[in-house]
Design a protein around this nucleic acid. Structure first.
Lengths: 216, 216
DNA sequence: AAAATAATTAACCAAATGGTTAAATTATTT
DNA sequence: AAATAATTTAACCATTTGGTTAATTATTTT
């Protein structure tokens, strides 16, 4: 009558994912995870030796799902415009489906930077140097050539991230805490960002012939 | 009167501030705070009934220090350019001096949105409607007029915030975990943002005719 | 200086929490 | 069907942790 090994384990990871995302590593309670998974706390430790190891399993799974999707968008082959477009689309989409993710992610990154950074760097799909170089070659003129390409990454990521990570406050202060209005704001935003970014690029289009060489 | 009392209490708040910022409400330990303040745990509870009340005291103090500074930058009287300039300068400055603040802030905002949002909304210096209206009136043309002014706020805040909140990861991935390089990146960024934002605005300046053009 | 009040401590306490043990139940293999 | 292995549970356990008590030491007040 009872669930098979695999099913139970997956149920645990699934529900642990929820709880960890909501409460963080410290805030999460093993009892709550066990309860929500409909099992005994001892069984939880049967499948995962410790809270940490459960957390690792959850985190690994999340990252392993996100990173490939993420890095697909950053192929050096594609044009910068394309990269930005698909990046913005994906990022906004993902956050809308996983609202607490940013908060959780950055919290844990600060609590345990080395562990998580090492883990993420371990993902072979991501090649930071390639990304930076790809951007460097294609920077639109208004990104002053003396500045680091990392500024552009920060810009795009920051603009995508902010309304999601700041939601609880931002929604209350600027949207009268109206969920629907905020959701509308968020869906509108992908469009807005792409329009805006394209607009800025287009204004300088005449100067770009192919791949402007800039030295940094 | 009780010179000691004040000193102890302030010492507690000071050290609690550190610990809470680093570990968050859940992660912080009363014992650690007591130790670092060089006092007994019982004395900690003598001054602050509970962990929560200590946390509140710390949070209130932080907010009360930041908000006025913050809202000063958002006076509806000043020009949008000025607002952005001083906002970016202040924001970047503050984060450089309080690196863990963003992470801490957003974590707590998500853990207890109502409490903190209510508290922040209680600060009478901040009038969201005024801010939005002020921005609405002065939006540069490339911010499509159909879009909400909140987009612009998200843009500026997001671009300021990102490299700070993402630092542990970003530094490791894109800067070979070199503290100095990252610090340089951060100090360069204020300049970069102002240059970039000014540049974008200037390109549409013909319709506004206000400030002399700078050369980029 | 004595009484009263405030600040501080050592020793406890109860609840919560991550984790364990050993037995029981269920599945699988022989 | 018996033996073996995997899964699940109830009852515990040790530690941690926020919080308390009651006594002690300053500090003010009278």
């Amino acid at each position: 009558m009872n669930a098979l090994k695999v099913e139970t384990k997956e149920k645990i990871i699934e529900v642990a994912h929820e709880v960890f995302l909501e409460k963080g590593l410290q805030g999460a309670r093993m009892q709550e995870i066990a309860d929500k998974a409909g099992i005994n706390k001892a069984l939880l430790h049967y499948y995962f030796r410790s809270k940490e190891s459960l957390f690792d399993a959850v985190f690994e799974k999340v990252i392993e799902e996100v990173i490939p999707e993420f890095s697909k968008k950053l192929q050096p082959s594609s044009k910068l415009e394309e990269v930005i477009r698909s990046f913005v689309e994906f990022y906004n989409n993902f956050f809308q489906e996983n609202p607490q993710f940013p908060q959780f992610f950055f919290h844990e990154i600060w609590q345990n930077p080395d562990k998580l950074a090492t883990f993420i760097k371990g993902q072979k799909n991501i090649k930071p140097d390639d990304i930076v170089n790809n951007i460097k070659k294609r920077l639109p003129p208004f990104y002053e050539s003396d500045y680091l390409p990392q500024h552009m990454i920060s810009n795009v990521m920051g603009m995508c991230l902010f309304p999601h990570i700041a939601r609880p406050l931002f929604q209350r202060i600027f949207f009268g805490n109206d969920e629907e209005k905020y959701d509308h704001f968020l869906s509108e935003r992908t469009d807005f960002l792409l329009t805006m970014l394209a607009g800025i690029e287009l204004e300088n289009k005449d100067q770009i012939t192919d791949e402007p060489e800039e030295d940094f």
